[in-house]
Each structure stands twice: as C-alpha cells, then as structure tokens.
C-alpha cells in the first residue's frame, strides 16, 4: 500500500487523509483534550520535542543530500556548501531567518550559473 499502489484518482486523497491529516490533527486534538494537565517543562515533553526535532533535521538532510527534480542534477558539494554558508551567515547575523535563506539561495544560484 504505497502512494502508487492504486491507479484510481481517489487513492492519493485517501493516502493524504490517512497518512497526513489523521497523523497531524490527532496531536492537535490530543492537545485540546489533555489541555492543562501536562506541564510544559515535563521530561516526557522534552523527549517528544527531541525526537520531533531530530526527525525534521533528517528531512532537511534528505532534501539537501537527496533532492528530487531539477536540483538532483547539481553537485552535492554545491548544495551542502550553499546550505552551510547560508547557515553560518544566519548565525553571525543574529539568527535572522530571511538573511540565512537569502545567502544560501544566492550561493546556490551563483554556483549553478557558474557551472
């Protein structure tokens, strides 16, 4: 049962509802139900945040190391270099998201045009 298992038009929507909508809104609804009963600084929540953060970091690595489409044909050192450069400037510039993103994009585009 993968994304491409069934050719029917409705299958991707079922996939999105089951693997996407249910898997996200269940946490939001659970948050409403448990309400004020969980302390923000409890150890269980720290662990939960750690796993969630590592997972999103894994997605970041996946997108940069193994991109799909047009970016896949670019050299890997250019993608890593652009991301690292953007992140370094972001740290130096006082953690401004806009600056970090702009620098990484500029490095990537310059690299792609120069190659």
């Amino acid at each position: 049962m993968t994304w491409q298992s069934l050719p029917d038009w409705w299958w991707p929507f079922v996939f999105i509802l089951a693997a996407g909508w249910l898997a996200t809104d269940i946490w939001r609804f659970l948050g409403v139900f448990v309400g004020g009963r969980i302390r923000e600084d409890s150890e269980a929540l720290v662990f939960v945040r750690c796993v969630a953060t590592a997972l999103v970091a894994a997605v970041i690595a996946q997108l940069i190391l193994f991109p799909t489409g047009e970016l896949a044909s670019s050299p890997i050192w250019l993608r890593i270099g652009a991301a690292a450069g953007g992140f370094a400037v972001y740290l130096v510039a006082g953690k401004r998201v806009l600056i970090g993103v702009a620098v990484a994009e500029a490095l990537l585009v310059i690299g792609l045009l120069a190659l």
């Binding site: 946490w27 309400g35 953060t53």
Partner: peptide
C-alpha cells in the same frame, strides 16, 4: 501507508505541546 503515517505522526508530535 503505515510507514508514511508513522513518519508524519512523529514529525507532528510537537503540535501537541504547542496546543497545550
């Protein structure tokens, strides 16, 4: 589908403490 749902659910756990 189950593996995809599990990965999405893990990436979304942080929504619960945010709602709380």
């Amino acid at each position: 589908l189950p593996a995809a749902a599990l990965a999405v659910a893990l990436s979304s756990v942080r929504l619960m403490p945010m709602v709380v």
